[in-house]
Amino acid sequence: GIPATNLSRVAGLEKQLAIELKVKQGAENMIQTYSNGSTKDRKLLLTAQQMLQDSKTKIDIIRMQLRRALQ
């Protein structure tokens, strides 16, 4: 079985993952909103794209940590 310490770690990672998935969803929504907007929305679009990139990276890292914890 999986050690108890790993189980609480997994629960924490799953919570983090859920949050990051919401951030990713929000960033994707912002990108959709701003991509057909005016030029003043360009900065917001770039910010949203950066957020999305960061979020995807975090999600990958969390998933990797989850896999390790579940081994």
Rank of each mutant, 00 (worst) to 15 (best):
1 G>V: 12
1 G>I: 11
2 I>R: 08
2 I>S: 10
2 I>M: 10
3 P>L: 08
4 A>L: 03
5 T>A: 11
5 T>P: 13
6 N>Q: 08
6 N>H: 13
6 N>V: 08
6 N>T: 06
7 L>V: 12
7 L>Q: 08
7 L>R: 14
7 L>N: 09
8 S>C: 15
9 R>C: 15
9 R>A: 08
10 V>N: 02
10 V>A: 03
10 V>I: 15
10 V>D: 01
12 G>L: 15
12 G>K: 15
13 L>F: 03
13 L>E: 00
14 E>R: 15
14 E>Q: 15
15 K>N: 05
15 K>Q: 08
15 K>Y: 06
15 K>R: 13
15 K>F: 07
16 Q>I: 08
16 Q>R: 10
17 L>P: 00
17 L>A: 00
18 A>M: 10
18 A>Q: 14
18 A>Y: 07
19 I>V: 08
19 I>E: 13
19 I>T: 07
19 I>G: 04
19 I>W: 08
19 I>M: 12
20 E>L: 13
20 E>D: 01
21 L>Y: 06
21 L>M: 11
21 L>V: 04
21 L>A: 02
22 K>T: 06
22 K>Q: 08
22 K>Y: 04
22 K>C: 14
23 V>F: 10
23 V>A: 08
23 V>C: 09
23 V>T: 06
23 V>D: 01
24 K>L: 14
24 K>N: 02
24 K>R: 07
25 Q>R: 09
26 G>H: 15
26 G>K: 15
26 G>E: 15
26 G>W: 13
26 G>L: 15
26 G>R: 15
27 A>H: 06
27 A>V: 13
27 A>S: 02
28 E>F: 04
28 E>Q: 06
28 E>P: 00
28 E>I: 11
28 E>S: 02
29 N>R: 12
30 M>G: 01
30 M>K: 04
30 M>A: 07
31 I>K: 01
31 I>D: 00
31 I>G: 01
32 Q>A: 13
33 T>C: 15
33 T>S: 12
33 T>M: 15
33 T>D: 13
34 Y>R: 02
34 Y>I: 08
35 S>K: 08
35 S>L: 13
35 S>I: 13
35 S>F: 14
35 S>W: 09
36 N>M: 06
36 N>K: 10
37 G>T: 06
37 G>D: 10
38 S>Y: 09
38 S>Q: 09
39 T>A: 10
39 T>P: 07
39 T>W: 06
40 K>G: 08
40 K>H: 12
40 K>W: 06
40 K>M: 09
41 D>V: 03
41 D>F: 04
41 D>M: 03
41 D>A: 03
42 R>K: 10
42 R>E: 15
42 R>V: 13
42 R>W: 14
43 K>S: 10
44 L>F: 06
44 L>W: 04
46 L>Y: 08
46 L>V: 09
47 T>I: 14
47 T>V: 14
47 T>C: 15
48 A>E: 01
49 Q>D: 01
49 Q>V: 13
50 Q>L: 09
50 Q>I: 08
50 Q>Y: 04
51 M>K: 04
51 M>S: 04
51 M>W: 04
52 L>D: 01
52 L>Y: 06
52 L>F: 04
52 L>R: 02
53 Q>E: 12
53 Q>R: 13
53 Q>Y: 07
53 Q>A: 12
53 Q>K: 12
54 D>C: 11
54 D>Q: 06
55 S>Q: 05
55 S>G: 01
56 K>N: 11
57 T>E: 12
58 K>A: 05
58 K>D: 01
59 I>V: 03
59 I>S: 01
59 I>Y: 01
59 I>N: 00
59 I>Q: 00
59 I>F: 00
60 D>T: 13
61 I>Y: 11
61 I>H: 10
61 I>F: 12
62 I>F: 02
63 R>E: 06
63 R>G: 02
64 M>T: 13
64 M>P: 13
64 M>Y: 07
65 Q>Y: 06
65 Q>E: 12
65 Q>S: 03
65 Q>M: 12
66 L>K: 01
66 L>C: 02
67 R>M: 07
67 R>L: 08
67 R>D: 06
67 R>Q: 08
68 R>Q: 12
69 A>V: 08
69 A>R: 02
69 A>T: 05
69 A>I: 14
69 A>D: 02
70 L>F: 05
70 L>N: 04
70 L>R: 08
70 L>E: 04
